[in-house]
Simulated scan of single mutants.
Amino acid sequence: MSTTVKVGVVGAGRVGAVLSAALRAAGHDVVAAAGESDASRRRIADLLPGVPVAKPSDVARSCDLLLLTVPDDSLHNVVSVLAAAGALRPGQLVVHTSGCHGLSVLAPAAEVGARTVALHPAMTFTGTSRDLPRLRGCVFGVTAPEAERATAESLVADLGGNATWVAEEHRTLYHAGLAHGANHLVTVVTEAMEMLRAAGGDDPASTLRPLLQAALDNALRSGDAALTGPIVRGDVETVSAHLTDISAHAPQALGSYVALARATLARVLTDGRQLPIRAQRITRALDAAAQRVRPGTTQEIR
């Protein structure tokens, strides 16, 4: 932003503390932070030394730019309470960092005359100083009124990132894509490491790292064309053997393996790389494995 502004943050979690620290490094004045948990207060001490800890309403009253970095399900209530308490004012910039919410959740702030922006960093956070360099070049999904687009772009630039514009009605889908790609990737990688460990590997991470990095680069570059492995090749016996050994040695991963194998099979069947008759044989193997998934667990397949 072109001028130094007073910044307040409500919800000094992993995202809020880091973004506030980045704005401080960009020359802005972080005047107050709200955080109830011990972890939040430690983050404030570590990343925002000297910044006073205050109640959310006092933080809101003290700043020109209010960052709301609270959990998604709490956001509407926090905005409503601050607006009802008279803690928000006309002309104040109120920004939330939720991925799935757009501007509608900030309606109580807009009704009192505040300017509103939804700004979500497409990044995973540890809540430590290690996150600060990761903001350079990070994409922020931004939803803003036309009158605030220049301000939002400037704010993203101060954070070291690049803005991508997300329509209000597509905000949830945008966030779902990020969650599916990143959160579920962590689950898959963790399960893969568990399988390798069960197979006797003493350093699964080192085994997987070059493979996963190459697979990710190829997928981002080429999409479905990057798919390799037994599903693409139609190796029914290999897939069946996988399912048998996973059932015996890593049953917690069976459900996700079956689900992702089905998804992979559907993609290569659609683009013609797999013949329907071979796909049917793989599907029968997956159906049989699905019956072995323990009922009542997160791995149950219906």
Rank of each mutant, 00 (worst) to 15 (best):
H175T: 01
A288Q: 02
T126Q: 13
S206L: 14
R149E: 03
C138A: 15
L65C: 05
V156A: 10
T4Y: 00
V268L: 09
V166F: 08
E191I: 08
V7N: 10
L119T: 06
V30I: 08
Q291R: 15
D72H: 12
D46T: 01
G86F: 04
E168W: 00
A34Q: 10
P90E: 14
A152S: 07
R14G: 01
G223W: 05
V239T: 07
D72C: 14
L269N: 07
W165Q: 14
P121I: 13
A87R: 00
L19H: 08
S256H: 08
E191W: 08
V79F: 14
W165T: 10
S256M: 08
V156H: 04
L132W: 01
G223A: 12
A109G: 11
A21R: 15
A83N: 01
A215T: 03
R292P: 00
M123P: 05
A285D: 02
V142K: 06
L19N: 12
R61F: 06
D235K: 07
L65M: 01
P295F: 00
Y257L: 13
A219D: 02
G141P: 05
A182V: 13
A157K: 13
L135Y: 13
R221M: 04
G229E: 12
A109Y: 11
V236N: 10
S37H: 04
A288Y: 00
T143C: 15
R14C: 11
W165P: 06
G8H: 10
A33W: 13
L93M: 03
G255S: 10
S74E: 14
A290E: 13
R24A: 05
G141L: 05
G201W: 04
P71N: 08
E237M: 12
N183T: 02
H175V: 01
A60P: 05
L119M: 15
E168A: 00
Q92C: 03
Q299V: 09
Y257C: 11
V15H: 06
E169D: 15
A85W: 06
R14H: 15
S240T: 14
L48I: 03
V81Q: 15
A157R: 11
V117F: 06
R221N: 07
D38E: 15
D271K: 00
T228Y: 12
V142C: 11
N77D: 15
S37T: 15
L135D: 03
D224F: 01
T228H: 12
V189H: 02
A199N: 04
V188F: 06
L173E: 13
G91D: 02
G223I: 06
H175E: 01
I277V: 14
S98C: 12
A214S: 07
M1E: 01
S222Y: 14
L178T: 06
S98E: 11
R278T: 09
L275V: 05
M195H: 10
P56T: 02
S206Q: 13
F140E: 00
S20A: 15
V15R: 09
G102A: 08
A83P: 09
S247Y: 03
T143F: 12
S2Y: 10
V31R: 12
N218W: 09
A167E: 09
G229T: 13
S256R: 12
Q299L: 06
A288C: 03
A26L: 07
S80Y: 10
D29Q: 07
A261F: 11
V7K: 02
V5I: 10
P230W: 04
L65Y: 08
T297H: 05
